[in-house]
Amino acid sequence: MSRALPVLTVVAAILALWYAAAVWMNATWTRDQAERAGVELSVSDILTDTMAQERPVLPAPHQVVTELWNTTARKKVTSKRSLVFHGWITLSATLLGFAIGTGAGILLAIGIVHNRAMDMSVMPWAIASQTIPILAIAPMIIVVLNSLGIQGLVPKAIISAYLSFFPVVVGMVKGLRSPDAMQLDLMRTYNASGRESFWKLRLPSSMPYLFTSLKIGIAASLVGAIVGELPTGAIRGLGARMLTGSYYGQTIQIWSALFAAAILAACLVGIVGVLQRVTLKRMGMDQ
């Protein structure tokens, strides 16, 4: 209860601000319409109208919630208007991209930790890769892959992987280097090879770091998948919903797609968090 109260207060404040902003921002259109029709408007008329426009500048919260409800629970999941359908399209690209990004990130980290040349050369490139705006890179990836005949899921997954490999590299390098000098010396007293030290010491030690990175990585993957849907003029996926929404001024559709993406991100991060807790607890590393 003591924790719920501040959270609820903040949520209530945001909702209040949101409603106020919706009234203020949508009122212009309401007044214009009324002027054209030559009608006088009372305050309550303005309030009612700004809450229920079809294409508001800023949809009111309940409009977004209603749209979310209508396009999830009340549509068949195979329908083109179902957010579950679009969500799944984005989710599948996210998961594939996350798998590729995590795999690549772990492999790069292993290389960096075990090979001096890679240690010196890979990290600067990895950092440079993240300083290039993804919006600039995404269309190029799509175009290049398209010319190779690769379309649909894979290009989006690659953009998604491009964003998610970086936190995994950083976290894994730190994790694989986390065993202290004493633990490494212990392995040396057994005459252990690099491979044995890796499997028996470095890899298990890196697990807490890996999971922290995975939480960031999966959220980044989702962003990547959505961004990957924007430049293709795709008609399926949450990114496509945002894009078509903006073509036709369907602000309610944009906002509901936005919230669907946020909810999806929260669920994905939550799932990774649960896996983290279960795994580390089983490994006795959950301090």
């Binding site: 004493m182 633990q183 010396d185 212990l186 007293t189 010491l201 298990p204 697990m207 490994m283 006795g284 590393m285």
Partner: peptide, 11 residues
């Protein structure tokens, strides 16, 4: 070799 800390693997 026995170190000052037990250094057992928690996992």
């Amino acid at each position: 070799y026995v170190f000052q800390a037990a250094g057992l693997y928690p996992w």
